[in-house]
Structure formats: structure tokens, C-alpha cells
Design a protein around this nucleic acid. Sequence first.
DNA 1: GGCTAAAGTGTCATGAAGTGACACTTGTCG
DNA 2: CGACAAGTGTCACTTCATGACACTTTAGCC
Lengths: 225, 225
Amino acid sequence: MTATAPEAHPAGPGPHPAGRRERKKQRTREALVDAAFRLFAEKGFDGTTVEEIADAVDVSSRTFFRYFASKEDVALTFQEEQHAAMLSALTDRPADEPVLTAVRRAVVGIAVACERGDLGFDPDRFECMMTLTADSDNLMAGSLEHAQKKQAILTRAIAARMGTDPATDLRPHVVASSVIAAFHAAADALTTDGLGFERLSDAVDAAFELLEAGLNYPSEGARPE
Amino acid sequence: MTATAPEAHPAGPGPHPAGRRERKKQRTREALVDAAFRLFAEKGFDGTTVEEIADAVDVSSRTFFRYFASKEDVALTFQEEQHAAMLSALTDRPADEPVLTAVRRAVVGIAVACERGDLGFDPDRFECMMTLTADSDNLMAGSLEHAQKKQAILTRAIAARMGTDPATDLRPHVVASSVIAAFHAAADALTTDGLGFERLSDAVDAAFELLEAGLNYPSEGARPE
DNA sequence: GGCTAAAGTGTCATGAAGTGACACTTGTCG
DNA sequence: CGACAAGTGTCACTTCATGACACTTTAGCC
């Protein structure tokens, strides 16, 4: 869930000016996320109970649900951050790039950053997320739903870049959903060897290249005149 | 006990030679689906419990779960059938149509059929599904997951049409996911008025048109040389 | 017809997710 | 310090989901 977003200054080494209560809350939240991922990595998503996560941090499971709306939610923190980073990267793209190109570079940039452990999160955890999502139906469903919800924001960002209004123009909607689709296809492609992708960033780049080039391929049965 | 069958069937010679057991099972299943949709329409998806559905058909809730893996599952019967119909329509398209075009016509054809109540299911229920999915997060997640799972099949169908191998060619993956994305974008667009779509089939057609034409629109900031 | 094996179902028990109510503790601020 | 609010624990409860076991119905066979 969206934190109340107090101060966003990770650079401050000293004590945060935001009051003890807020700091403690933040620490508990992070501890829950850490414990959750440790346990997920160890026993899988479905194999881990909320109670175990809460116990590992020494809070009641009731408290867990005061920080996260569901068990999925704690795992999806990640995608939340990635998505935010991606949006920010998108607005940083030069204004004259065509939309798909801009989105492509933004997404690939984030993927590379994740793989290298920049952006503040651990690349292992990034890897872990992919595994978890792949083998828990519940988490997969949650992940898809999350993406779906974020799509509206992406649609607006894309519309802004196109200088159009998403309330009256279907195009940004189709672009946004296709973009997310391409991303998912890429994530999928990673697990299918034979396609020969080592890194997510490579797969994403390839998928977007196809999307940019247009998808209306001829059928096999088409007779060349 | 519990022999109070709601609909007494004429004890005459069964027209179906398929065995009484099988017929009874089928009837129970259909009764569950019917009751579920009736209750969903009345009280919403989240507002309806499995027990209520089971009670309405006079079976135990344990039995409900012998027919459906989850509460979502019973609602998704529908998408299951639509998807199957769509695949079948796709293979019926002329062999020389380019892929996107073929998929577009198949999907639009199914949408029209649904709206008209052909294909054996009730158009009201079709409408109901859209409403339900829109206001239950759980059902939305389930629906998305279902689509995701079916995507693999669509990918193969598209690959077959292109005469290529999905294990070594990324294109059918991207096409399949984009196609599903376009469909979702269309479903979304229906609820956004201002886009001016009355029927799903119209929205789908428009979304596919955009997809076919290519999505890499210029940004507003692009300076025309 | 009657017997048997298996399919289908009900009942009971259990586990885990998620929520509401209420009291207790602790940080914040005057 | 004292009042107030935020955060938390505990308890009770609902719902989804699954496993175990016994009972009933059906199918198949003699």
C-alpha cells in the first residue's frame, strides 16, 4: 500500500527529523518486507504464512495487515517502486522521441538498473520476485491486478507525452496496455529458453522492437501475388 | 436425504445415452453456475458466499469445491467458453489474412455473437460479467490470471498461423499478449465515456485498428523539421 | 436379481486469510 | 505533567479452501 510518503531523503545519514513514531513505523515496515522476502525465498509464497512473517519481526499478524492489505501486497512493494521509477524515467526522456521509443528506453533503463542493483533494491530480490511470481498463482494474479491498476497512470503519462486527452482518445489506452503486454511477454520469454534471452532487459528490448515495427505479420497461407 | 430436487425431471426414458451419473453431474454444475450468477447479480461477487451458492442448489459447500476450484472459477466459466469460441473462430479465418487482421475479425465476431446472445450464452450474463469484474478486485485478479493462462494457447495458434515456432520466435508471444491487451483496453474504454463506445464489439474493433496501424506515435514535443 | 467397485456427496475437522472491536502502550504536543 | 492520538496486541469471528472418512448412488458383471 502507498505509505504516507513522509520525507524522501535517503541521503540524510543522521537522524531523520520526522519524529520517532514515523521512523519506527518505517522500520517495522521494512523489517516486514525483509522477513517476507527471506521466507518467500526459503519456503515459497504459498508456503509462507502471514503469521510466520509477523512472528519473524515480532509483531502480531493483525499488525501485518495494518501495514499491508494482503499477503500479495507485501511482495508487490517491489513492482510499486519499479513502476514509479519507470514513470519518472519516462518523463525524463527527450520530448521529441516517439512514444513507443521513449517508453522502450525508459523500461529498458529500469530493467538494466534493477539487474545491476542500482535504484536501491537488491538484484537478488528482483530475481526472487520473478521466481515467486512464476510459481504462485495467487501472486501472479495479484501482480497482474497491480499492473492493471497502474495502467491508468501510464495511460495518462503517455497521453501527456502525445499531447492528447485519454478521455476522448483511445490511442493512449491501447499504447499503455500494449506496452505492459510487451513487458509481460518479455518476462515470459525469459523462462522459455530457445528464445535465448539471458537478461530481462534484453528480452524487453527485443519485445519493444517488435512492437515498434508493427505486428501485422503475413500468415503462412498468404499467397504472394 | 436432501432429495428435494428443485426441478423434478420427467422420469421418462432419458434422451441422453450418456449415463445417468454423468447427466446428473452436468445438471448440478449448471445449477451451480446459474445460482452463482443470480446471486452475484443480486449481491455482488464479494457479497456472495460459497455457502449461499451451494445452499441455493441444495448441495454442501464442500461439493461446490468439487466442481470449481474457487469462487472465481465459477464466474470464469464464461471467459473459458468465450476463449474457446475465439480460438475456433480464429482457425476459421481465411489463411491469407495477416495475423492481426485475422485475430481482429475473430475477436470482433465473438463479441458481436455475445452481444446478440448467440453462442448459447445469455447476453445479460455477458453484461453481468463486465459489471462484476469491474467491482470486485478478487474477480478482476482471477480474470486476468485466467487470460494470462490462456495466452499460451493463443500464442501457439498465432504461431501456427504464421508458420513459425513459438519456442524460438518471440513474435507470436508479443502478438498474443498485445492482442489480449487491446481487448482489455477496449473493455476498459467501454466504461470511459467520452470515447463514445456503445458496444464492446465497436471498442474492440477500434482498438485493433490502432494496433494494426502501429503505435509509435510522435510525441507532442517532436519538432517537425 | 444381487454383488462389487467406484464415483459422488455429506459431515466433520482443520488451516489460513482477512476484519472488527476494544483495551493497552507509547509517542507527541500543549 | 497530562491529554490526546497513533500504533499495537488480543480476542472473536467470517470466509475460502482442503483433507479424511463414512454413506449413498450408480455402473458393470455374475
